[in-house]
Design a protein around this nucleic acid. Structure first.
Lengths: 182, 182
DNA sequence: GAAACTATACCGTCTGGACGGTATAGTTTT
DNA sequence: AAAACTATACCGTCCAGACGGTATAGTTTC
């Protein structure tokens, strides 16, 4: 990667770290600069505005998700319901950094939904893929919505019974998807 | 309702109106005061902090949801899967004001998830009710997660193909819940 | 029944801090 | 020499919350 690319990556990671430690409210350019061990000017050299940082985080999230989904789809080959299974698996592979970035974007998007336009496009593709590859389209859509629901509930700490519940439910979704029925 | 209760209601409606018009980012005490035709001091008399306003919005949101769910549950009596069907129906009855309040809370919660603690409790109750009243528990949970997913995706404008998609998908969920199978 | 007092419901102003962004001049790295 | 910074200073705006004051309707005291 180019030097500029490396710096951008470092800045985005720093932003995620700030959110992870202090919450989305404290995601400020100053805080990111301190975390990335750059000056404020240095950060603004690569990302000309705070919004650009958020857009960068979204880009990165989308890339990672897309990559994971492609990998799982390749693994599954032409097994039935490959699309929805790949989405569920990709969702499970979320790490702490992605979680932080998603939370930051959630906060920002509540204030300006247009920020998430690129995500809207990607989700549209998921819907299409699920509709095309599912033996039972209704079940596929249901699972896709449930996966997203699980993601948001988890992100906002709204799941009852805390920590393990998330994996349990994720496993349930995957089981149903693999069975292709209930 | 008492005079104080009326004032609080007015302030919360004003807050929702501000969010609906200007977005969650512009939900400030000043804006709420202007919308409610009070001074800033007047607003702070009833809600001692901005956070208290958000908590008030959450309270109100929860009350309305709970009321709708109870009503639908009563209507459904002991029909099968009453719990999940009531939740789906209640979700569909969301009006613009509730939507705005939910969006404001989403923004605030991304900065401080603990704000949503009361909601966590309520959602926990939904899970329990669905687990107990569903002929097929797995399907019930799946529908509950999908309902939440639909709510969040809609709230953030992440559903592809725009406006009507939300009702379509909601109807699908309801159909599946009524059939009790796919 | 008049005066004193209290509680409720506000109004208007002020302050202190946070933050996004700009500017500029110099330094290191490639 | 160009790119990639650093360091520092600064500006303008926004906003939460504090504070002191006002109006009024009831309640108590004498």
């Amino acid at each position: 990667m180019s030097a500029a690319g490396l710096a951008k990556t470092k800045i985005l990671s720093a932003a995620a770290a700030v959110v992870g430690r202090s919450g989305a409210a404290h995601l400020t350019i100053d805080a990111v600069a301190a975390e990335a061990k750059l000056s404020k000017g240095g950060v603004l050299y690569h990302f000309p505005s705070k919004r650009a940082i958020l857009e960068g985080m979204l880009d990165r999230l989308i890339s990672r998700y897309s990559e994971r989904i492609s990998r799982f789809e390749a693994e599954l080959g032409d097994e039935p319901d490959a699309a929805i299974r790949a989405v569920i698996l990709a969702d499970r592979g979320q790490d702490a950094e992605e979680r932080s970035m998603a939370l930051a974007l959630l906060a920002a998007a509540a204030e300006d939904p247009e920020l998430l336009a690129p995500a809207r496009a990607v989700i549209g593709q998921w819907f299409e893929a699920v509709e095309q590859s599912s033996g039972n389209v209704q079940l596929g859509i249901l699972l896709l919505l449930a996966t997203e629901g699980l993601r948001f509930l988890d992100m906002l700490d709204l799941l009852p019974a805390g920590g393990t519940r998330r994996e349990q439910l994720g496993q349930t979704l995957l089981n149903v998807a693999e069975a292709g029925r209930l």
